[in-house]
Design a protein around this nucleic acid. Structure first.
Lengths: 192, 192
DNA sequence: GTCTATAAAATGATAGAC
DNA sequence: GTCTATCATTTTATAGAC
């Protein structure tokens, strides 16, 4: 089961299809056809359609959780932590662009106990980021703007990076990280 | 047909349900039940499930198109135009928070000719915003960062405002607009 | 304008042959 | 490991009674 190459293909193709039309719009027949087999054959590799969604979404959610935990703990300034969080999102987006679409839009179709686990991870992520911003304001590293607006704005941009990244070529990872840091942390206006 | 109050109720309830689970996850039975009637009764007011989606999505898409057209034409600075675009998004989000969710996530389930029309409006919107940013850079009102990154970052935040706005109370429209302008245009870092 | 009854198609999933 | 055949359920939508 560990080396089931076919299962990996199924998950990869499913993530691609879910990204285009969403979990509910893709039938097992659609998925099978994209793989060149019949729908019934899928069940030799996966237990159910639900399991496919779960494997796709939970893996990425766990990567984000591990990432933010590590950044939270490290002994660096708040601005440096925000820089690392931007890098975390860019890295995961590049590696799991299709899956992120389901993390953003299909998570509500998870079933218990995954649904509860996902929501806890998501809330925990937001809370850790909120604490980093709060400390940054206290230490006068970050402007004293409404913290929830700030949090929302950063997360919106980082979470939807996948919508835009795959369309643009000619920008490498380092350049992208640099631009994102500039825009998210320093703004675009010149009139100060 | 103009004064069909029931039809308006159907569209409003449908938008609420689509927001929670997406167009494909909501059946006509679900919608009917939320309205306290049977599924068959819906068809006295609407032609099909497709028509419901179309009415919800296209109205909001047209509002955005009208708004950006008007802003584009007016004789004000680029930064002032960006300020007005932020106001446009805040206003439409407050008035059509449920519908915006379908505009973001369910538009791909539109059928022709609506699908093509929607995509044209969306591309047109992005292009008008791109031109405003470009002129702002030329006139030295806006920092000379990668224009596509800037465009993407602004739109990501503005388009997902609905995810966040309905959760937070205690912030009024004017305050929200002010904070968004600050974050999107001036950034959050203090170290310059 | 809403109901019951029902058609026609699509869906997730299983059984068993090869 | 994939196939054909099939099942049980759900789905959108229509017809016709009230």
């Amino acid at each position: 089961m560990k080396g089931d190459q076919r299962k990996k293909e199924i998950l990869k193709t499913a993530a691609q299809l879910f990204r285009k039309k969403g979990y509910n719009a893709i039938s097992m027949r659609d998925l099978a056809q994209a793989l060149g087999i019949k729908a019934a054959s899928l069940y030799n590799h996966i237990k159910s359609k639900q399991e496919i969604l779960s494997l796709i979404v939970m893996e990425v959610a766990e990567s984000f959780t591990l990432g933010i935990d590590s950044i939270s703990k490290s002994k660096i300034s708040s601005i440096q932590k925000l820089n690392q969080i931007i890098e975390l999102h860019v890295n995961i987006t590049i590696e799991h662009a299709d899956a992120i679409s389901s993390v953003n839009n299909d998570w509500m179709h998870l079933k218990e106990p995954d649904l509860d686990s996902f929501i806890k991870m998501r809330d925990g992520y937001e809370d850790k980021l909120r604490k980093i911003i709060k400390k940054g304001i206290k230490d006068k590293e970050i402007a004293d703007i409404n913290i929830e607006v700030m949090l929302f704005s950063m997360l919106s941009t980082l979470r939807t990076l996948h919508l835009w990244y795959s369309k643009k070529q000619g920008i490498n990872k380092e350049e992208l990280c640099g631009q994102m840091k500039h825009i998210l942390l320093k703004g675009i206006s010149l009139d100060k």
